[in-house]
Simulated scan of single mutants.
Amino acid sequence: MNQAPILTVTLNPALDLSTEVDEVKPDLKLRCAAPVTDPGGGGINVSRAIAVMDGESAAFVALGGATGTRLAELLDRAGINLHCIDAPGETRESLAVTDRATGQQYRFVMPGPTWQDRDAQAALDGIVRAAPPGGLVVLSGSNPPGVPDDFAARLAARLADEQAGLIVDTSGPALRQLARGGHRVTLLRMDRAEAEELAGAPLPQRADTAGFAASLVLAGAAQAVIVARGDDGNIVAHETGQWHAESHPVEVVSKVGAGDSFVAGFTLATARGLDVDHALGWGAAMASAACMTPATELCRAEDAHRLFAERIVTRL
């Protein structure tokens, strides 16, 4: 299927380790199962999920040290086309531990190396050089320590000159910078708690969420704003309308990578020319499919196709 080119960006990647123990207890040596190792980080996971769905993307990744070398090898084996820059320190690791007794999962995420202004500028220039004209750039995941809060906003301005769209899934001060408006990125995604923090008030009903998301579109923050409402599904406000996608009733094995799978589904559908309501349905389907798989496996294509066929997307 034809699609516009996609470049994902991961400034703070991680080597993801996942394992299991019989029970998580303090002060004891916990005997773990053999770990599963995957390349991780927001943009990397988006590229991996796009590949699962027979889509194509390139990944712009900042890597450093022996851990970075190992992560690059894993991405190469996965067939991900890489654009690498040197990170200012060792690439971080993250750990997910499942307690077999309760089924609960504990996730430990390290901060990553600290960046200087020159590192952020080099990354900005590198992304713009790698950005596909007429394509989509996906900036997903947390900023490394030291990266300025306005990095995504600066990138949006640079990409506008290259006629490349920007999809952003970030948090904290970087999200607040974009939400102030004026950048008109292609898509801005957040969860319900983040939306309520930005709104300065609870958003208990779908109409409340849709109204807030629409206000961000009107302010020029983005052409489309998605708010994930957890078990109550996802809402998108777009310049052409507002829609809600029901969450799928699946057995949750692990929520690791569900948000990234959502972004992958929406991005790939958009790159393939589908309307925003269908893109929302693909995002919801791939996120739910990711919840059905263990650890950091992300979604499976057969599950995503089945769930998309069962989608319930309603215009608000």
Rank of each mutant, 00 (worst) to 15 (best):
T186Y: 06
A287F: 10
A96M: 13
R306F: 03
Y106M: 14
W282K: 02
G103I: 11
S18E: 04
V185Y: 02
V61P: 00
L15P: 11
E239A: 14
P249F: 09
A153F: 03
V46C: 08
G181V: 13
L307K: 02
M292D: 01
A4Y: 06
G165V: 01
D54E: 14
V109D: 11
A14T: 14
D169T: 04
A152Y: 02
A237T: 03
P35M: 02
G257R: 08
L15S: 10
F262K: 11
E196A: 15
N143M: 15
R184W: 09
L216F: 10
L63H: 04
D232L: 13
G89I: 08
V21M: 06
G89P: 07
V21P: 04
V225P: 02
V313R: 08
C32S: 09
A207I: 13
W115Q: 07
G273Q: 09
D16N: 13
G43L: 01
R154G: 06
Q205N: 11
K255W: 06
P249V: 04
L216M: 14
T69W: 00
L75V: 05
A123Q: 05
F108T: 02
G172Q: 07
M1H: 14
R189F: 04
G141S: 11
G265S: 04
A228T: 12
D16K: 05
A195H: 05
G41P: 10
T19F: 03
A120L: 07
Y106S: 15
A59R: 00
N81C: 11
T102I: 08
A258D: 10
A228W: 01
P133I: 12
K29P: 03
V217R: 03
P35A: 04
S254D: 12
K25W: 02
H248Q: 10
E251W: 00
W243C: 04
E56G: 12
V185P: 00
G43C: 05
L188I: 03
A284F: 02
L28I: 12
V276N: 00
H83V: 11
F151Q: 08
E23A: 15
A72T: 06
V185E: 05
A4P: 00
I312Q: 15
V147I: 03
L75S: 00
G65N: 04
T114K: 13
P26R: 09
A221D: 05
S215T: 09
R229T: 10
V250Y: 03
I80T: 08
R180C: 10
L316E: 13
T37G: 01
T240E: 14
